[in-house]
Amino acid sequence: MKLKKNLALSDSGFVFDPSTGDSFSTNPIGLEIIRMLKEGKNANDIKNHVTKTYMTDDASFEKDYYDFVNMLTKHNLVEGGEKEKN
């Protein structure tokens, strides 16, 4: 999955999509994930990073991750809207 390249992020968790004019608010872990996605990291990279840094396990995070990614897609923040291939 690819995020739109031109998404503007700020440390406060403010996300701005210049192509639509929509703006969003995300929590710190959400911001971290969006930044990693922008850097081109895949689901596995992100999962490894989060489970290493935070008190959570693979199964719980995976569920939350896919829900989050679905929300990104729903909010039209994904390039072409295509699904990520693992």
Partner: peptide, 11 residues
Amino acid sequence: ELDEFEKISTL
């Protein structure tokens, strides 16, 4: 400016 809207919206 967008950053003003950002500040009032997020902070």
